[in-house]
């Protein structure tokens, strides 16, 4: 284990211990914050009884759908924008201020039009996450080295060969950064929408527990969200680290 990992564990563990202590001593009231050990126990119970599984499944399906749609959609929009420089210049100021637009404000209207199901949730999550992919695609295309195009010409690559063997591998690290953003914003979009208004889902269960004054369950489910986000980050970091080490190796040669 690296020193960094050890320090991270010490930091998070220390923080949890402090919270546990504050709750147990009674400095923070039971109705305000549940001790971490109780959160974990409630969460374990949710899984053991299988109560949360349908909600978790629904949430994960929505996140997956949003991630796929936003990744492909963002990539295509990025490609199209890049082929029309004038359009791209015109769209740029809108993209730059996109994140300050309260996307969640559209969700209730969407739910009113489409009904309370997974469609408005997925649309909100896609709207929330697609711009990250558009920007990453444009970045990746901008950074594509001109010399590789020349290389392809000297080797008489076909268009298909060039796309598959040169462009895609060269762009992959950048695109992966975009996918990471898409996953993060899809999480925010899906769980946020479920929390606001839904009939099922982890976000909905959090708001339900809150309205029922079931504080331990509410915190237990929040812990579940934190764990899910951490797992997703961990998974997406694996290929990124591989790219980074490959790039380093190439530089070393």
């Amino acid at each position: 284990m690296t020193a960094v990992r050890k320090r991270q564990i010490a930091l998070v563990g220390g923080l949890l211990l402090v919270i546990e202590f504050l709750c147990r001593v009674g400095l923070v009231h039971k109705t305000t914050l549940a001790p971490p050990s109780v959160m974990l126990a409630t969460l374990a119970d949710e899984f053991a009884s299988g109560r949360i599984l349908p909600d978790l499944g629904e949430t994960l399906i929505c996140i997956l759908a949003s991630t796929i749609i936003a990744t492909i959609g963002g990539f295509v929009v990025g490609l199209v924008l890049n082929s029309f420089p004038r359009l791209r210049d015109a769209v740029r100021p809108i993209l730059a201020s996109y994140y300050s637009i309260p996307i969640f404000a559209f969700y209730p209207a969407l739910a009113a039009i489409l009904g309370l199901g997974i469609a408005p949730i997925i649309i909100t999550a896609v709207l929330n996450s697609i711009v990250g992919m558009i920007i990453a695609t444009e970045d990746a295309l901008d950074r594509f080295p001109r010399v590789l195009v020349k290389l392809a010409r000297t080797h008489r690559f076909t268009w298909w060969q060039q796309a598959l063997h040169l462009q895609l591998p060269a762009m992959l690290p950048n695109l992966l950064g975009g996918v990471k953003l898409v996953v993060a914003y899809s999480f925010i979009g899906v769980i946020g929408s479920e929390f606001l208004m839904a009939a099922i889902g982890v976000g909905y269960q959090i708001s339900y527990s809150y309205n029922e004054f079931n504080v331990p369950r509410m915190y237990g489910l929040m812990l579940l969200v934190v764990i899910l986000v951490a797992l997703a980050n961990l998974l997406l970091n694996v290929p990124e680290r591989r790219f980074a080490s490959r790039a380093m190796g190439r530089r070393g040669e």
Binding site: Y185, F195, G203
Partner: peptide, 26 residues
């Protein structure tokens, strides 16, 4: 930096709307 950067990145991708009950309680 090395210790906190990944933790903060994870924090950035957390849906903060769900924290609203906590804020209300405090």
């Amino acid at each position: 930096y090395d210790t906190c950067e990944p933790l903060l990145m994870a924090l950035a991708s957390l849906p903060k709307v769900t924290l609203y009950p906590v804020i209300l309680m405090f």
